[in-house]
């Protein structure tokens, strides 16, 4: 469990994170979504005690980060920026972390196996690919077998196989009852992994909701139909109980009739169709709309 209360970070006159209050619960993958520069990484660094908050605080299992005894056994994190000395072998990197937190040394081989780096344990990371570097970071996070895991943009720059692997790993960790907190600037990525969603924009909390709820509220499905004779079509649709909406480009959108029924009605009335399609407003659009509003609001409020 991670709890943020009024967490704020100011750099001079700019506010990077403003009054964030939310909890990240165990057993589910919680997505932390926001555009680039919205304060996700800063928030995560404050959770780890790397950056000092200007106001507010973070509790991890009820305690402040620096009060945790052997913190790596409570919370493991993969940060976006590299946190590995390129000249120190993968094994020694994990060894120094394990020693400082009294983690059994067999865990080093376990996590290297788990992330698929056992073969390069004695190699220096300067020769690692982006994906291998990411895997070493994940191995560091898992080293202490912590109940809480935090990943900052874990799929950035990974190949499809690597992305698939991380998605499955996060789901598995959550299924084991752990707290999994993962940030991304891509809604599509979150839609595939997260059960719960925390959205921020300009450092402010915009949404704290379950993924299902977010989809239900934001993912509108409808039928688009285009016809040279759209007045007659509209009348036919209205007789069938539909409420078509006229779009600026001349097409009609209907939310309350399925595409098949719209086609049948057109045939019954001898209306020629140029287009009949099922549409789904993407979550990406919903997310953009949400964060865009916050940008607008912010710009106006700041004036």
């Amino acid at each position: 469990m991670i709890e943020l209360a009024g967490l704020t970070k100011r750099y001079g006159r700019t506010t990077a994170v403003q009054d964030l209050t939310f909890s990240v619960r165990p057993g589910v993958v919680t997505g932390f979504l926001g555009p680039n520069g919205s304060g996700k990484s800063t928030t995560m660094r404050m959770i780890l005690g790397l950056d000092h908050p200007s106001a507010g605080q973070v509790r991890i299992d009820g305690r402040r980060y620096h009060q945790l005894a052997d913190p790596l056994t409570h919370i493991g994190a993969l940060l976006e920026a590299k946190a590995v000395h390129p000249g120190r072998t993968a094994y020694h990197h994990l060894l120094c972390l394990a020693q400082s937190n009294d983690i059994p040394l067999r865990r080093i081989d376990d996590v290297l196996d788990l992330v698929g780096l056992a073969g390069v344990a004695k190699k220096r990371p300067k020769g690692f690919s982006l994906g291998m570097g990411q895997r070493l970071g994940i191995a560091s996070a898992l080293l202490g077998d912590p109940r809480i895991l935090m990943f900052d943009e874990p799929v950035n720059g990974l190949d499809p196989e690597g992305i698939q692997w991380i998605r499955n790993l996060m789901k598995r960790l959550a299924a084991e009852g752990r707290t999994v907190f993962v940030s991304s600037h891509l809604m599509s990525e979150m839609a595939l992994t997260a059960d719960h969603l925390i959205v921020i924009g300009q450092g402010r909390l915009l949404a704290d909701t379950s993924m299902a709820r977010f989809i239900e509220e934001n993912a509108r499905t409808f039928v688009r139909v285009r016809s040279p004779d759209h007045e007659r079509l509209r009348a036919a649709l209205e007789r069938a109980g539909g409420r078509p909406r006229q779009c600026p480009d001349g097409s009609l959108e209907i939310e309350d009739l399925p595409a098949a029924r719209v086609g049948e009605l057109a045939a019954e009335n001898d209306v020629v169709l140029h287009e009949l399609s099922h549409q789904q407003a993407s979550l990406e659009e919903a997310f953009m709309r949400l964060t865009h509003e916050s940008v607008e609001y912010h710009a106006r409020a700041g004036r």
């Binding site: 790397l50 980060y65 620096h66 945790l68 994190a77 940060l79 000395h85 120190r88 937190n101």
Partner: peptide, 18 residues
Amino acid sequence: SNEYSTGMIRASLTAVPV
């Protein structure tokens, strides 16, 4: 300073936060 130039300091301070 290698801790800073490589980013290792972040791993070090999460392991030893005091």
